[in-house]
Every structure is written in C-alpha cells, then in structure tokens.
Amino acid sequence: MKKSIIALAMTVAAIMPATAQKQEGLVMTPPMGWNSWNKFHTDIDEEKIKGIVDALVETGLRDAGYIYVNLDDAWHGKRDSLGWIQCDPVRFPSGMKALADYVHSKGMKFGVYSDAGEQTCAMYPGSRGHEYQDAIQYAKWGVDYLKFDWFRQDLVGAEGAYTLMRDALYSTGRPIVFSICEWGENGTRKWAPRTGHLWRTGGDIGAYFSESPCHEKPILWCIENNNTYRECAGPNAWNDPDNLEVGNGMSINQDRAHFSLWCMMAAPLILGNDVRNMTPEVLAIVSNREAIAIDQDSLGIQGLRVKNENGLQYWFKPLMNGDWAFCVLNTNKIPAQITLDWSKDFNFTDELSRRSTDFSNITYGIRNIWTGKNDGKTDKARTITVPGEDVVMYRLIR
C-alpha cells in the first residue's frame, strides 16, 4: 500500500501542468513571526508552543505583525503504515490539527518544518518520496507555512527537489508560505525567487555579533552575505539571512544593530527567542513599530550599502511616498563620531529602484527611529555619535 501511494504521488507530480507555481500574494511584505529552533532546538512540546502563542498575544507582538508561529525540527513522530507523517504523540498529544486550531484561534498562523531528504537534521522523517502526501497532510492540519530544509539530500538537484515540494503545496489549494532552506549553496539566486516565498542566503545564524566559536554564522557575516542577493528580493519573494537572535544573549547594542539591519535588508522578521521571558529592552527592540514599518514597507526594495569604511557601514533603503530609511552601523567596539553632510556625501541614484536621494534639491525631515524624536532636516550637516556595535537609524521623510 505504501508503495502505491508513493507511486500515485509521483504520477500526480508528472501530470501537474508546467505552469505550476508558488502561490501569489501570500507575503507581499517580509513574513513576521516566531520559530522554535534558535532558542529551543529540539526541546519543543505542545504546552511550550501554546505558551509562546499566548505570550505573543499578551506582549502585543502579534498586533505588531508577528503572526506566524513555526515549529522547527523535532515535532515529528513516525509515519503510519500508509506513509502519512504523524507528530510525536508524547510531545504533542493533542495532535497538529488541534495545535494549529489553537494558533488560529489567537489570530495567528501555523507553520511546520520538513526536509527534502529522507531525514531531517535531527534525524526525524524527511519528505523525500512523500512530498505530495506530506503536502496533503499539512493542508489537512491547517498549516500555513512550511520551512523546507536540505539535510542529507544527495540524490537530486536542489532546484528539482524544491520545485517538486512547491508543486505539491500548490496542488492542495491551501495557501502555504514556502520557505526554502538550502543555505544558498546550489545556485539559489537563479531559481529560488520563482520557487519559494523566501530562501535562506547562507548557513545557520548564531547569537554572535562579529565572530563565532562554532559553525553558526555571526550577525556581521549574515549581513555581508545577504547583501550580495539584493537584486533577488521583492514582494512575495524575500532574501532570508535566517531568524532573529535578538534576546538570545547578545548585548542590547548588538541586538538593536541586528534588528535594524534586518529591517534595512527587508528580511523576514522571525523571532528566535523565548518571548515568554523577555527583558523590557528586548521587547522594546522587537516591537518598535517605526523600525518594523521600514522592514514592511510595501515598495519591497532591499536596502543598499553605499559606503563601508573604517568599520562604519552606511545603508539606504527606498520607501514608499519618496521616503528613505538611513542607517549607520558601527561594527567597531568603541563609539564613532561622524558628520553627515547629506548633499555632499549621499547624493546618488539607486539603479535597482531607479530612485535618487537628490539631497541637493530635496529637504527631508529626519525621524530618529530608536529615540522616537525628530532630529531636524537634511538641509544642514549634522554631527552624531554612533555607539560601539550599534546603529543610528533614521526615516528621511519627503
């Protein structure tokens, strides 16, 4: 029976029209939510996830836009005798459908994780040979988001494997965000934008700012790497430098810098901390509506770095209505005093958006994102101090 179901799935895949595609309009701005991996790894269960859901509501984070609650690796049980994937009956005794219903009842959406290979990173059942079957199961459960990993996948190419899963999701008729997680290692930029709604541009992130003691990538590495994918991003298609590590042990300065650059890069804002136990400072960072608005700007253009010198990075992001976001990232450990002479130093045209700053002819109002104050206008040069491993971030208002 199992063989016949797999054969049926392969037959369905073969007859799917060549025009099968990812579902449109699901994430016209970068998705926002929470994922279990960064903080909990495989230590997840039903009550813990419900606690996270409740905390997202109680802290106001749901209302700030964090609506996807995504289980990463280790929710899986075994496949049944017909090959249908099940959840772990001890960790999730009520089942995935009941958990999805709970998430939905709180006004949020529910996500799960699988792998293109036979096993996940944590050695649970992957989806190879069961793509259509798993997609059907996810749709029955009420899944809204699938993160699809690339561990132990050595039989087919990445594009083919991810296209197969995309088509399987599409065939269910249920809107499911498709998150590609093959780490940018297989010509990702050539095929991922037409295949998934977001795609990882590099390896797993860690809660380290500039240097990492392990395989996990530090924040500055993720920024540098993700910057090379700028032309790939846009509405319903986003570069993913990985989930946020805000609140997982870095300094507040580093957390603020990390969050700011994700907003400047129009990256998905997927929290990776324990939102049940946050300091007020961490909550203030991830709930800053003005920073989030820069990330969620409907123009959908990833920011660009226009200058990188002496440990200081200068970033601009074109926004709707002629506004710009501006951010100075200080990667040094000590504060830096700099002078911003807008018309002298920052007149340029962004070829991707075809927008010009035109500081010589346009005077913008300066809104400080992290102080919540107005800091004058761009018709005059200004001297500012950027704290070590921190940012100054403005919205330049037309």
Rank of each mutant, 00 (worst) to 15 (best):
M10K: 15
I15Y: 13
G65I: 15
V112R: 04
I15P: 08
Q23N: 09
G107P: 10
Y124M: 15
M10Q: 14
A122Q: 12
G83M: 04
E47I: 07
G51A: 03
I136H: 12
K106S: 06
D73G: 04
V57N: 15
E131I: 00
V53E: 01
M28I: 05
G60A: 10
R79N: 02
Y66T: 00
E47Y: 11
A116R: 07
H41C: 12
D45A: 13
L61C: 09
A20K: 15
L82M: 12
F92Y: 07
Y66W: 07
G25H: 11
Q137G: 07
W34A: 00
T59S: 14
W84H: 07
A7F: 13
V69H: 08
H41W: 14
L8E: 07
A122C: 09
Y102N: 03
M123P: 01
I6V: 15
K109Q: 06
G51P: 01
M96T: 06
I5Q: 03
A18E: 15
A9F: 08
G83T: 04
A13G: 08
A100Q: 05
K109C: 05
P125H: 04
D63G: 12
S114P: 02
H130F: 14
L61V: 06
A7K: 13
Y68P: 11
S36Q: 06
M108D: 03
T59A: 11
D134W: 08
I15M: 13
P17M: 06
P31G: 06
Y124A: 11
K50D: 02
V57L: 12
A122W: 12
W75S: 04
K22L: 09
Y102H: 03
E47T: 08
N38A: 14
V112F: 07
W34N: 02
I49W: 02
Q137H: 11
I15R: 10
M28N: 09
S105E: 15
D54E: 12
T11A: 15
G65V: 11
H76F: 10
F110A: 02
G51F: 05
N35R: 07
V112H: 01
L99N: 09
G129V: 00
S36T: 10
V27I: 15
A20S: 14
L56Y: 10
I49F: 02
N38K: 10
G126T: 01
M108P: 01
